[in-house]
Design a protein around this nucleic acid. Structure first.
Length: 412
RNA sequence: CGGGGUGUGGCGCAGUUGAUAGCGCGUCCGGUUUGGGACCGGAAGGUCGUAGGUUUGAGUCCUAUCACCCCGACCA
């Protein structure tokens, strides 16, 4: 992509009403546009990041047998009444609306009820189970207070998977498999080293704990206690002596940290399936409850967390796997021809490039490149005598290479 | 939802005891520049969040309202 054609521009100042570092940088660099409090549009650069995150999540969900689908945003109130989650006293962050004829509708804040409602059409026998389905799409929550930029929005993107099993044992296996997939996802996103599986409250309908995935961060909203050697943590909310013993955690090994919840997994037992009257018939001809689990990952929140986590004083720093483009190609002076050749050569290798072909001074290009945060910078300049200068976003050293050497370096 | 704060060109800000709204960045035109956000000259762009009110006169005072931010409570 030529930067001269990118419709967004960088800006030197962040809007005064945006305090969160992630949103400040993402806005300054042209990744997102704030539509209103807690509601952000994803601009071309931002959408590329979002799509990269989604793709990693999708691949890992597919790898454990998840089947992708897309549920609806508009929701009939009846199914939510069956699980007693329609009443505003029970769920206070619903967005609700009405059809022209007055029929009340909900705007989806989660999708347990609708997916279970779908099962009714397709699941009746033990032969139909187990399976998992997931979707990646918008969620709407009428938060009393949106905050922290992309970390807590009223409209946000989430991957939510739901599993359905014949027995608790079968469910546990799926659940653990999903937890392992989550670890892979955070690893691939570059967050593996500081994202912890964290025991948390399982909710009112199970005595099991749920698991949160907490990325350590000063801007985190949760207080967690981390056992760094075992790579596990416990949320402050459930930090009691009794729970520590139940979980086999040693209080003395725990360190208090702040975390951002970047995912969670819940045991739902048969609460939703029973409430919506969806059962299966076992091989003895007996009606049985379906055991389910739900598994969320905040896609747009992850973009915020990653922006926040890796940024330095110059701007964003994207991990290799989710960067909108791999290379920031800077053309200095009268070098269009050479720059185009490098651009094409990189692209032929399958390396994505943002080519700064603008007619602006070098300093501005470097500053913008650093703000935008692509991992690799390549400079084409008359000074380099046909070679190119390579530097990484995070390193200080620059090396002058031939184009062939550059391709070899970036091509693996 | 409780407490606190802020709304003035695209962005960041100033605007005194009430008197026809300024600055920086950005944008446009012309020129000089070109390895770290250049410089010179010119120009466009604002019913001061909105609605009432007080006043000869309101960005400024009063009332209401909306939006946004922060702390708390709640939540992916």
């Amino acid at each position: 992509m030529k930067q001269s054609q990118l419709f967004t521009k960088t800006r030197k100042n962040a809007p005064a009403d945006e305090v969160a570092r992630n949103a400040q940088l993402l806005i300054r660099a042209g990744y997102v546009h704030k539509e209103m409090a807690g509601v952000y549009a994803y601009l071309p650069l931002g959408l590329r990041v979002i799509e990269n995150i989604k793709q990693i999540v999708r691949e890992e969900m597919n790898a454990i047998g998840g089947q992708e689908l897309a549920m609806t945003t508009l929701q009939p109130k009846e199914i939510w009444e069956k699980t007693d989650r329609w009443d505003d006293a029970k769920v206070d962050n619903w967005f609700k609306t009405k059809l022209a004829n007055g029929t009340e509708l909900g705007v989806g804040f989660t999708h347990e009820e609708p997916i279970v409602d779908v099962l009714r059409d397709y699941v009746s026998s033990y032969k139909d189970l187990p399976f998992s389905v997931y979707q990646i799409g918008p969620k709407f929550r009428n938060e009393l207070r949106a905050k922290s930029g992309l970390l807590r929005g009223r409209e946000f993107l989430m991957k939510d998977m739901y599993s359905f099993a014949k027995t608790q044992q079968e469910h546990e296996k799926i659940y653990e498999g999903t937890v392992q997939a989550y670890h892979k996802i955070y690893e691939r996103l570059g967050l593996g080293d500081f994202t912890y599986r964290t025991y948390a409250d399982g909710g009112i309908f199970t005595d099991k704990f749920s698991d949160e995935f907490q990325t350590l961060s000063d801007v985190g909203e949760d207080t967690i206690y981390v056992d760094e050697t075992r790579k596990i943590a416990i949320n402050k909310e459930i930090m009691t002596d009794e729970n520590l013993e139940k979980l086999g955690l040693d209080k003395n090994a725990l360190v208090e940290k702040r975390g951002v919840e970047v995912g969670n997994t819940f045991h739902l037992e048969s609460k939703y399936t029973d409430a919506l009257d969806v059962y299966f018939t076992d091989d003895q001809g007996q009606k049985q409850s379906i055991i389910s689990g739900c598994y969320g990952i905040g896609i747009s929140r992850l973009m915020g967390v990653i922006a926040e986590q890796f940024a330095d004083e110059k701007g964003l720093v994207w991990p290799e796997n989710i960067t909108p483009f791999k290379v920031y190609l800077v053309q200095i002076g009268d070098t269009v021809k050479q720059a185009r050749a490098v651009y094409k050569a990189l692209q032929e290798k399958g390396i994505t490039v943002l080519w700064d072909d603008r007619d602006v001074r070098p300093g501005e290009k470097f500053a913008d490149g650093e703000l935008i945060g692509l991992p690799h910078r390549v400079v084409v300049s008359e000074k380099l005598d046909g070679q190119v200068e390579y530097s990484s976003r995070t390193g200080n050293e620059k090396e002058v290479l031939t184009v062939e050497a550059l391709l070899a370096k970036l091509g693996n």
